[in-house]
Every structure is written in structure tokens, then in C-alpha cells.
Computed example of a mutant assay.
Amino acid sequence: MDDHVRDLASVREATERLLTAAARLDNASVAEPTRLPGWSRGHLLAHIARNADALANVLDGRPMYASAESRDADIERDAARPLDTQVTDVRESSARFQEAGAVPADWSRTVELRNGVTDAASRVPFRRWAEVELHHVDLGIGYELEDLPEEFTRREIDFLAERFRGHSAVPAILLKEEDGRVTASGRTEGAPIAVAGRRADLLGWLAGRRDGTALTTDGGPLPALPPL
């Protein structure tokens, strides 16, 4: 089982890094685009806040979102708010998530996320950690994939490799990190394609944040990955 207590602490640390960086912005920069097509920094900060509440719902046994439409509408509604309101919302919603995580519970239980996806409750804090870290990068304010904690980068590579494992649209691949660590993903049949590179570049490719041009294969083109 994942160590949810340690992951909750990592979420707190990552959230503080994001809040400290976001507080240096101004109202004009909040309206500027992020690295996610069609989203301003206001959209992204609103999403980070609403995701904290959504994952608190999951831990409390409620639906993650009332509907896909309400999720999108809430983000759109909150996107244009001034910086101080955005920062306060992220801080307060993050505190609510931490409170939900502090309630004594069976962390081995299965919980339901979006679109019928299920997972162990113990993995929800790591999912929140990923939301905070990757979206901090997406804000485009100086925090890059290379700045992510090493533990997070390794675990997120494992998480995404697992997500693509057995996927019919992804050929068998072996992810080879610079220190020699190897992780299998993609289809289980066929000769695997070795994809090698720095951890930050491997994570960026798996997470759809980089195009993979910094990676190498043992022959042939880099496989195309379906959207997450």
C-alpha cells in the first residue's frame, strides 16, 4: 500500500512551493496563457483549487464532480478572479483536502474517480501530488520538470507506465532512465522498443508535456502515446 501519510506531507510541501511562486504574479499575468492550450493561469489555478475539493469528495465517499459539465463550468466561472482570490482559494481548498486525508479511514478501500476510474484510497494523495507538481510546471512561471523532486519524478514515471501498460494503442516499450532503471509499459506482446533519456524528458513525454525529441530509441521512431 502507498504511504498516504508521507504523500499528504509531500502534497503540503508542493502546494506551498506553488503558492509561493503564484503569489509573485500579478493580476495581468494571471490572465496570460499557460502551457495548456486554451487555459489562462486563472483557469489553471481554478482547476487546482477545484481538484482539491474534488479529491476531498472522493475521500469522503462522494462523487468527485457533480458532472463533467459542472466541473468545466466551475473552472470557467473562477478563471477571471484576481490573484489574491485565486491564491486564497488554492490555499483553503488544499487545507480542506488535507483535512479529509486526516480522517481515520480504511486506506485500502477502493474509491471512484472520474469517468468510472477506480483506485485504492491510499493512492489519492499521490494523485493530488501529481496535480500540484505538474500544473505548477504548466503555469510557465519558472518551475520546470527538472525541478520536480526526484522521488516524485520516479513514481510518476511508474504511475504513467502502469497507466499505459496493456494499452492496445501503445506498442511494448522499455523506459530506460539515465541511471539504468528500466520500466516496462505498453502492450505485453511483441519485441519492446527501448526508449531512453533523462528522467525529466521521459516524464515529460509520458505526461504529454514534451514531444520526446530529447529521447532516443533502439531503432525506429518514438511511439505515439494516446492522450491521458
Score class of each variant (00 low, 15 high):
Ala161Gly: 15
Ser185Asn: 08
Ala102Tyr: 09
Arg127Ser: 06
Gly142Ile: 12
Asp84Ile: 08
Val30Tyr: 00
Ala21Ser: 10
Leu8Asp: 06
Ala130Gly: 15
Leu134Thr: 02
Gly190Arg: 06
Arg81Asn: 05
Arg6Asn: 01
Leu113Gly: 02
Ala191Ser: 15
Val30Ile: 09
Thr213Ser: 14
Leu228Cys: 11
Arg71Gln: 01
Glu69Met: 02
Arg62Gln: 12
Val103Lys: 04
Ile141Pro: 03
Tyr143Phe: 15
Phe97Asp: 09
Asn51Gln: 10
Val132Arg: 08
Asp89Tyr: 10
Arg210Phe: 08
Arg12Trp: 06
Val117Ala: 14
Val11Lys: 10
Thr88Lys: 14
Ile193Val: 13
Leu225His: 12
Glu32His: 04
Asp78His: 01
Thr183Cys: 01
Glu133Met: 08
Pro171Ser: 06
Ile75Met: 04
Asp218Cys: 06
Val111Phe: 09
Ala54Tyr: 06
Arg62Tyr: 03
Pro226Cys: 13
Phe97Arg: 07
Pro37Ser: 03
Lys176Leu: 12
Ala100Pro: 01
Arg154Met: 02
Leu59Glu: 02
Thr34Phe: 03
Pro226Ser: 09
Ala214Trp: 15
Gly101Gln: 04
Pro223Ile: 11
Arg91Gln: 13
Asn115Cys: 07
Val117Thr: 13
Ile141Lys: 11
Val11Met: 13
Glu16Gln: 14
Glu32Ile: 01
Arg114Lys: 07
Glu144Gly: 13
Tyr143Lys: 13
Leu113Asn: 01
Val30Cys: 02
Leu139Glu: 04
Ala130Trp: 15
Pro37Lys: 02
Ile193Glu: 06
Gly101Ala: 10
Gly101Thr: 10
Phe164Ala: 05
Asp60Val: 12
Ala120Glu: 04
Tyr143Ala: 12
Trp205Gly: 01
Gly219Arg: 03
Gly116Pro: 01
Leu8Lys: 03
Ala54Leu: 06
Arg81Thr: 00
Asp3Glu: 05
Thr85Pro: 09
Arg210Pro: 04
Leu45Thr: 02
Ala224Arg: 12
Ala130Phe: 11
Arg109Asp: 07
Gly219Asp: 05
Ser93Pro: 06
Asp53Ser: 09
Val170Ser: 01
Arg77Lys: 01
Val117Asp: 12
Ala95Lys: 09
Pro63Met: 05
Glu144Phe: 14
Ser185Cys: 09
Trp39His: 00
Ala194Tyr: 09
Gly197Ser: 14
Gly61Met: 06
Leu113Trp: 02
Glu178His: 07
